[in-house]
């Protein structure tokens, strides 16, 4: 039973994450991201960490990706999506990023070595164990992440702020917002 659930949701997670990077329409890609996050949450529950699973759905699937959709709808990326998919520059940004990620994961495995890779114990993934680890051993990284988020919030506020002379924001041109609904979207679909 557990193996069956694992196979279904692991396959779903891989398939939907492929759709996220491959689909032309940003809305479909975003919705596939929700499916990916949900499947990974199910895997967390199967690993005995229901708290992480619930938080994954609550924070990522339920809030952050909704904001992605919000921005996509405000900017009306439909028209731009077809062109953006073929932009060659993307590859040159994505490739070093992927290599960096693989390198980091490899470094972790290489430095930690095989004996350090043990299954998580039940008291570590429990709410109490997680909170104790976060607020004692890993307090500094935790606080740094908080600072990073604060910087991001201030940055976003400054970027979206209206110019003092009453002009609309630089990042959200008004004509895009007004025209969002009336544009016929058919040509963007294949």
């Amino acid at each position: 039973m557990e193996t069956l659930i694992f196979l279904i949701f692991a396959a779903l997670a891989v398939a939907s994450s492929l759709v996220v990077v491959a689909h032309r329409s940003p809305v479909y890609a975003t919705m596939s991201l929700v499916v990916t996050l949900f499947s990974v949450a199910v895997l967390f529950v199967l690993l005995g960490a229901p708290f992480l699973g619930a938080l994954q759905i609550l924070i990522y699937a339920g809030a952050i990706v909704v904001l992605f959709l919000f921005v996509i709808m405000l900017l009306n990326l439909q028209k731009a999506s077809a062109a953006a998919g073929r932009r060659g520059g993307q590859l040159w940004v994505a490739l070093p990023g992927a290599l960096l990620f693989v390198g980091m994961v490899g470094l972790v495995f290489w430095r930690a070595g095989a004996p350090a890779l043990q299954p998580l114990t039940a008291d570590l993934v429990s709410l109490k164990g997680l909170a104790t680890a976060l607020f004692s051993d890993y307090l500094l990284p935790f606080e740094i992440v908080g600072l990073l988020l604060l910087v991001a919030v201030i940055g976003a506020t400054v970027a979206a702020r209206r110019a003092p002379d009453g002009e609309a924001s630089r990042l959200l041109p008004r004509e895009d917002f007004v025209g969002a609904g009336d544009e016929p979207r058919k040509e963007a679909r294949s």
Partner: peptide, 30 residues
């Protein structure tokens, strides 16, 4: 995880509204 599960599942309800608004291709819906 009782209450968290409730909040997590109910937070997914927003997608139906957003997708209905987007998929209708009507400016009022959007």
């Amino acid at each position: 995880t009782g209450v968290l599960l409730f909040l997590a599942l109910s937070s997914l309800a927003v997608y139906s509204l957003v997708l209905a608004g987007y998929a209708s291709n009507n400016k009022f819906s959007l």
